[in-house]
Nucleic acid binder design. Structure first.
Length: 546
RNA sequence: GCGCCCAUAGCUCAAUUGGAUAGAGCGUUUGACUACGAAUCAAAAGGUUAGAGGUUCAACUCCUCUUGGGCGCGCCA
């Protein structure tokens, strides 16, 4: 992880220094952007780590290191000092800031793209809602996180494939077909009861009504197929409205129904394989996965006594299939209610010869919808849940995505519909979008060529703070990668907006001295690039006018 | 009962995975539009990080216990 090009050299220098102190192994220290309350551009904890190894005072080590660093990095580091328990705080030279600012201006939307690294193939599997009903608000959170994380990883140079796993086989599809059929007959006037465990949502009635309107004959309708394709169609439409597009739709039938030359499905084969390997065993007429071998609470059934496979069996086969497609890392986004499932699937992939690290399951906590402070009920049982589409139609895609990406997946999210709709400062999405609108309203009237600007004229605190924030964009994306969460980017954009608005207040652009005006125009262009790219990675638009 | 996640300012949440004086937004109070968009800015108040122990040079972060919340615990998907 390198955010600035001199970092590698810095690490070498420090490691050589450590060697001179008699430390042979590579030491692991961080080069980081310090917390806000610290007045520094970069911080190193290397002195503390070296001091511990050679059992001496970190401040002595730090003093020696500072001397070396200030000499060797005079072009980038203006000054360095010891702080706290032995941190070394670094300050950039103005030349370095200008150079980085130029990098943003020349690379434009490709800024912070990593080249010739991270060629690994990564799969991000998310949403994967059963095609038995429309997407609800919870799927929306998973969709936003998965899509945005994918965009960020792609920007960082990974080869990312976004996949939707479609559970389109099994009993649930039969129930779906029967549900529609029953509704159809009821609408035709038959006095029959609805299925006990059928799908009770209004959308089933709508499908039945559509089928009636289309005038098809009852005997000729394949209710299962019709329901499935129509629901899938609405799911795809909702995702499109949400600006989420998948690279791959993977159907469960491929591994659970399709047969190879021996008449076996992929599920058959993987179960056979695990059995031969000794990781699965027969007991009480069922086939069990010995998941306790890898830390699960209990062993799990793969094939029932009646011969039918469980959902787990397909999922094991599905994951085997993923690795056969040569994904170095697989990321799954699951709702937190699936957490009990993590241990068994982790066990399974290890049985299949993968390292634990090859699978990362991100659990996102559920969303609670609030309107005017009052909770909005959403129970799938009664069929009355809030669909993603309802929310999108009400608050719009931008606000919806931004709100979903505001928090770490681990924390429960309160989503206030009224707040998301507000076009005021209470609403952070407008606060960030407003930055670009302000930039563009100045830039649109500026006709001169600013590319020759002398950036050293950007000398006020506000301007320097803004440049420093802009050049930490790359670091922010790397943190998102490391923590596998886009919310750091959302926070970054809000902070950047804050610093920009402060700059805007203090520093006039148009009508200043011609040269200063030019330099500030360049700064505005850079701001606009970062805000636009950053919002795009969240899947949020950055309009020029609002 | 067992397991997973969580508990941070009045409210909603951050804190770069063990670092420094725990930060934002909203809300509250007080100010700023005859200059590029006031959808903005400046300032103030607000904290024993649920509680108690422990590990460490260093703990919101790791370990143990307690309290309080969410979610799981099927040969369902």
């Amino acid at each position: 992880m390198l955010k600035f090009n001199f970092e590698e050299q810095l690490k070498n220098t420090i490691n050589n220094f450590a060697k001179s102190k008699g430390i042979e192994e590579q030491i692991s220290f961080v080069v980081e952007i310090p917390p806000k309350n610290i007045n520094a551009d970069l911080a190193l904890n290397a002195a503390m780590i070296i001091a511990k190894k050679v059992r001496t005072n970190p401040r002595i080590i730090a003093t020696e290191l500072i001397e070396i660093i200030s000499k060797e990095f005079a072009n980038t580091i203006k000054s360095a000092e010891i702080a706290g328990a032995g941190f070394i705080n670094l300050h950039f030279t103005d030349e370095f800031l200008q150079q980085e600012l130029n990098k943003i201006l020349s690379k434009k939307q490709d800024y912070a793209k990593q080249e010739n690294v991270n060629k690994d193939k990564i799969m991000v599997e998310f949403v994967s809602a059963n095609p038995t009903g429309p997407l609800h608000i919870g799927h929306g959170r998973g969709a936003a996180i998965g899509d945005s994380l994918s965009r960020i990883l792609k920007h960082l140079g990974y080869n990312v494939v976004k996949e939707y796993y479609l559970n389109d086989v099994g009993n649930q599809m039969n129930v779906l077909g029967e549900s529609t059929k029953t509704r159809y007959r009821q609408l035709k006037g038959e006095d029959i009861p609805f299925l006990e465990d059928g799908y009770k949502g209004e959308y089933i009635k709508d499908i039945a009504q559509d089928l009636i309107n289309e005038g098809k004959k009852f005997e000729e309708i394949d209710f299962k197929k019709e329901s499935h394709t129509r629901i899938l169609e609405t799911i795809k439409k909702d995702l499109e409205q949400f600006r989420v597009n998948f690279d791959s739709w993977f159907s469960e039938s491929k591994i659970a129904s399709d047969k190879d030359e021996n008449g076996k499905t992929q599920v058959d084969n993987v179960c056979q394989y695990l059995k031969e390997k000794g990781d699965a065993f027969e007991q009480d007429g069922a086939l069990w996965l010995k998941s306790t071998l890898y830390g699960d609470d209990k062993d799990r059934v793969l094939r029932r006594t009646d011969g039918r496979y469980t959902y787990l069996a397909s999922d094991v086969a599905y994951h085997k299939n993923k690795y056969e497609r040569e994904f170095a890392q697989v990321i799954n986004l699951w709702g937190a209610d699936h957490h009990g499932y993590v241990a068994r699937i982790m066990a399974a992939i290890q049985m299949l010869g993968q390292k634990k690290e090859a699978l990362k399951v991100i659990l996102y906590q559920l969303v609670s919808l609030v309107r005017n402070g009052q909770p909005v009920a959403m129970s799938t049982r009664s069929g009355e849940f809030i669909t993603l589409k309802d929310v999108l139609d009400e608050v719009g895609t931008d606000a919806c995505r931004f709100f979903f990406l505001l928090r770490a997946p681990d924390s429960q999210l309160e989503f206030d519909l009224e707040l998301a709709k507000k076009q005021t400062s209470e609403n952070p999405v407008f606060y960030v979008q407003y930055v670009n609108a302000r930039c563009q309203s100045i830039l649109k009237d500026y006709k001169e060529d600013s590319s020759t600007a002398n950036l050293s004229l950007l000398s006020t605190k506000e301007e320097k703070d803004l440049i420093k924030k802009l050049i930490s964009f790359e670091d922010t994306l790397l943190i998102c990668d490391k923590t596998k969460s886009p919310h750091h980017l959302t926070t970054y954009l809000i902070e950047t907006a804050d610093i920009y608005h402060r700059f805007y207040e203090k520093c006039r652009v148009l009508g200043e001295d011609k040269e200063l005006e030019k330099a500030r125009i360049q700064l505005l262009k850079a701001v606009s690039i970062i805000i636009t790219v950053g919002l795009d990675l969240l899947g949020v638009s950055a309009p020029n006018k609002m």
